[in-house]
Design a protein around this nucleic acid. Sequence first.
DNA 1: GATATGACGTCAT
DNA 2: CATGACGCCATAT
Length: 106
Amino acid sequence: MKQNMFQRILRQVRRIPRGKVATYGDVAYAAGFPGAARQVAWALHSSSGLPWQRVVGAGGRILLTGEAGLEQRLRLENEGVSFVGLRVNMKEHHFSLFGRRRKRTR
DNA sequence: GATATGACGTCAT
DNA sequence: CATGACGCCATAT
């Protein structure tokens, strides 16, 4: 079923540790859906209880509009994420979802 | 099924 | 850096 897509996306989002961030594209790619960055966003506001704040746009830019964007920025800074201008300091907080996927407990 | 929309990404200007 | 255009894909109507 298609809903599996969201599940996979959400699973990647939950993997992002505190103080780090990932981009929509990266999450989508890691989930196995390159190009489905938009669905990542959809998944985020369709579900709750997720660290949505750790998902930002390409280059670490916050894409949320209005107060939500401000919220996200505050929450991230609160977790120890630093900013450079209007974007996240990717140099320091870009989380690599790439690499080990859930390949069983070895 | 067609059209519009969106917390996207990349490239061209 | 700002804008516009195109590509991408699941939902909503």
